[in-house]
Design a protein around this nucleic acid. Structure first.
Lengths: 162, 162
DNA sequence: GAACAGTATCTGACGCATCAGATATTCCCG
DNA sequence: CGGGAATATCTGATGCGTCAGATACTGTTC
């Protein structure tokens, strides 16, 4: 694992820190600009988009606040307020859960479904146009594999760390 | 590029959106937990750590606020406040720039240098322990390459988008 | 050299997530 | 069954980043 760093300069120049920093920095900036696109073109925040997708993917009668907070990296308090705003925007509805009177059930409205469709289209088009199409065609398959491997490895690291 | 989505469920199940979402989600969660580790073990925020590294890497007399805001994804107002807190914590110092009296120069204090060394050590150890060591040894080289490719590709996409 | 566009930084108002604690309900165990 | 631990959600206080505008200085152009 190498020796401890002697100076700040040396620490900053450490290979693994730099490579990793670049990776994380690039990924988070990418997330940032893609989220921004969704916001500007669809009028919903990045997190709202995520929640729309989570609800759409789940289908059925809807999800509890807690489930949403687990799928998303958000505290339950954060979900409460996010869903407040989404409800005010008409994207989702809350109803009491008859099976457990502590809980509520959140489900998409028709407006929310339409917005999920619209935003997914924008998102997919952006990914295609700015990220995938510029790749040389012969690299795309390998690249998709890289993406998959990195996703899995990062996910496992998160599991070990938290 | 495929047809427009007909339903929210179909949009949510779109392959490219899912694969990408997983990648971005995994990367941002990883960044989150690693940042958290730095915060808990070193008492500085993730962004403070980034700025310490930027200053350490730059060396010399220091950097302007604007340069820091360019290297980091932060508005200049955000940098002002971040540097305010770092200055209050004794990590950096601000001085007037004699060559341009609009600007200030930010540089590391001895405390800031020591903190950069400490936090880099913690960061590197975490990356090694939770991310790299669990990889099968024979995959590590290929993996480092994946990481490099993805960083570059994501960086280019950000450039095209913003 | 005066006017003016450009640039660097700072600041008030605001948005949004977190944290900690409150409230309501359910589960489980003796 | 009664009572405490667990769970679901909500809320007040707080932290921190953004946005838009203010301030101060620089460089350029006529």
């Amino acid at each position: 694992m190498g020796e401890a760093f002697a100076t700040a300069k040396e620490a900053a120049d450490d290979e693994s820190v730099i490579a990793f920093g670049r990776f994380l920095g690039a990924a988070s900036r990418l997330e940032h600009v893609l989220g921004r696109e969704i916001e500007e073109r669809c009028g919903i925040s990045h997190l709202m988009f995520e929640v729309l997708l989570i609800l759409a993917r789940a289908g059925g009668p809807g999800l509890s606040m807690r489930t949403i907070s687990h799928e998303q990296v958000l505290t339950t308090g954060g979900v409460t307020r996010l869903i407040d705003r989404m409800e005010a925007a008409g994207l989702v509805e809350r109803s009491d859960n008859p099976a457990d009177r502590r809980g509520r059930i959140v489900r998409l409205t028709a407006v929310g479904e339409a917005k999920a469709v619209e935003a997914s289209g924008v998102h997919r088009a952006n990914i295609q146009q700015y990220f995938l199409e510029p790749l040389p065609a012969e690299h795309r398959a390998a690249f998709a594999e890289d993406l998959r491997i990195l996703s899995r490895t990062a996910g496992e690291a998160v599991g070990r760390l938290r």
